[in-house]
């Protein structure tokens, strides 16, 4: 098991470096001189510009810039924005809100997605089953931001059931609607996945054997169908984190949640490359690390992965 975990971590390293390098390159290979754009008409002379460039490592070759950036990143320093605020500071103040939002969203995914999925998986072919299948497809195809606006308008402004914007208060009462909207697509996908997985497993040989040896139905369902059906679902929740983070940018913007996605949106609007690249890099790191954890969890659930090739 330890060997497997080590192997998996080593495999993730090139992915981590490759992905951060790609994002870094995308933002810093932009044409134009960011320092000159920063000072506009009041630029100091060339010598002065060079000092500022040296401070941001802009005088060094691109590869070296990237390596220095990664070195600082590993030491917990995400660099500073051109306006002087440290990016780590921005992340530290806004990240808790995003984590809060994300955790509520994932909780909804597990409770609603897996819960409904199990029910329709067991009652396959019923009217309930087919209507859930259609409803989930509808939910998957509605864009997050459209759903966000409509719910904000209907439930927040017209009906006044929930607060229309979140702002600085991040208690559950303010957060549950944005989280539910953020999770909607994933809830629907997880529901379908759980249903299909349970259906596939109910036809498996070992399930037939368990019935044949006289196990009661609820025991077969819990022990033999349910446990095996959760394996693809766990993997999906990990892989889906990427979509969740992309969606968080939209949801946080709409509901004015002071989270990291909102900061990313603001940085895009201001055209601040450093902040954009730092936040996206952070998202990529979280994504890669979560997927290692999910893979290890996968190996715990399914011994074939551990002992196989």
């Amino acid at each position: 098991m330890v060997k497997y975990i080590l192997k998996r971590c080593l495999q993730a390293l090139p992915v981590l470096f490759g992905a951060t390098f790609l994002v870094y390159g995308l933002v810093f290979l932009q044409p134009g001189d960011p320092i000159r754009a920063l000072c506009g008409q009041h630029c100091p002379n060339e010598a002065g510009l060079d000092i500022i460039r040296a401070r941001y490592n802009l005088d060094k070759p691109f590869i070296l810039q990237y390596l220095l950036y990664m070195k600082n990143l590993l030491l917990g320093d995400f660099g500073t924005t051109f306006s002087g605020r440290s990016v780590s500071d921005i992340i530290a103040t806004s990240m808790p809100n995003t984590i809060h939002l994300g955790l509520i969203a994932i909780a909804f995914e597990i409770i609603l997605g897996v819960g409904i999925g199990i029910i329709v998986g067991i009652r396959r072919g019923s009217f309930f089953d087919s209507s859930i299948l259609v409803i989930t497809l509808i939910l998957i195809s509605i864009p997050t931001f459209v759903l966000g606006f409509v719910c904000q308008l209907v439930f927040g402004m017209n009906l006044g059931i929930v607060p229309p914007t979140v702002g600085s208060s991040t208690d559950f009462e303010h957060m549950y609607m944005p989280a539910l909207i953020l999770a909607t697509g994933s809830i629907a996908s997880i529901c379908r996945l759980t249903r299909n997985s349970i259906q596939d497993n109910s036809y498996a040989d070992h399930v037939r054997t368990s019935y044949a040896k006289g196990l009661p139905r609820y025991q077969v369902t819990l022990r033999h169908i349910f446990r095996n059906s959760m394996i693809p679902v766990v993997t999906y929740i990990g892989a889906d984190l990427g979509a969740l983070m992309g969606g968080a940018v939209l949801t946080e913007t709409i509901f004015n949640i002071q989270g990291i996605g909102n900061q990313l949106y603001a940085a895009i609007q201001r055209g601040e490359g450093t902040t954009v690249v730092s936040i996206i890099t952070l998202f990529v790191i979280i994504f890669v690390v979560t997927n290692i954890v999910v893979d290890i969890l996968y190996a715990v659930l399914d011994p074939r992965i551990r002992y196989g090739k």
Partner: peptide, 22 residues
């Protein structure tokens, strides 16, 4: 497969935002 992993590690919307900046 490694190249695929690298691109897969960047969520669609976020990667698109970074590239569209460029």
């Amino acid at each position: 497969s490694r190249i695929t992993d690298v691109f897969f590690a960047i969520p669609l919307i976020l990667g698109a935002v970074a590239l569209l900046q460029l």
